[in-house]
């Protein structure tokens, strides 16, 4: 049995028929074609599937699609401007080489924006703590932390790439 769920994704109202057990990540990827949201572990640990629901970072592999009914969802696809101009956090990841294989990157960028929203001015230690639910298997954390710090607390960046 399916039911219709209607939600706003990246500013546009979207509807889909889903089973109650359909995960938000599955709705986004398989039914709405938004494959920028990655599913790494499917066990609430790796953070590759982080999206924003009503402006807050959540793991979309551990939320039902029906639980997002009526909510505002933002995915990695919703960040850049229509003309392709990157969101400042995306630009920071590019500038600071905040990615290697790129698999964790959508979740890292979405969590980076969440950190910037919740704790502007955060220091490096705080940024690292706040990333504990986002795993990078390349262990490329140095660039990721620099990228996020450059947005939340530019004075705290010790940039190894451009020194």
């Amino acid at each position: 049995m399916t039911s219709k769920v209607t939600l706003t994704v990246n500013g546009k109202e979207r509807s889909a028929d889903v089973e109650a057990r359909t995960l938000l990540a599955e709705l986004l990827r398989d039914q709405l074609g938004l494959t920028g949201t990655h599913v790494g572990c499917d066990t609430t640990q790796c953070g590759c599937c982080v999206v924003h629901v009503d402006g807050k970072a959540v793991k979309s592999c551990t939320m039902l699609a029906v639980q997002a009914s009526g909510k505002q969802v933002t995915t990695i696809e919703g960040l850049a401007a229509a003309d392709g101009t990157l969101h400042p956090m995306q630009e920071a990841f590019r500038e600071h080489h905040g990615l290697q294989c790129g698999f964790c990157t959508p979740g890292m960028v979405m969590m980076g924006i969440d950190i910037a929203n919740r704790m502007p001015g955060a220091d490096e230690k705080t940024v690292r703590e706040q990333l504990e639910g986002n795993l990078c298997r390349c262990t490329g954390y140095q660039g990721i932390v620099e990228a996020i710090l450059s947005v939340v607390n530019p004075g705290a960046v010790k940039d190894h790439h451009h020194a």
């Binding site: 609430t44 953070g47 982080v50 629901v53 807050k56 970072a57 959540v58 793991k59 551990t62 939320m63 969590m111 969440d114 950190i115 919740r118 706040q130 504990e132 639910g133 986002n134």
Partner: peptide, 9 residues
């Protein structure tokens, strides 16, 4: 508890 995304849910 958990991590920031878990703490939002």
């Amino acid at each position: 508890i958990g991590d920031p995304a878990v703490r939002h849910r």
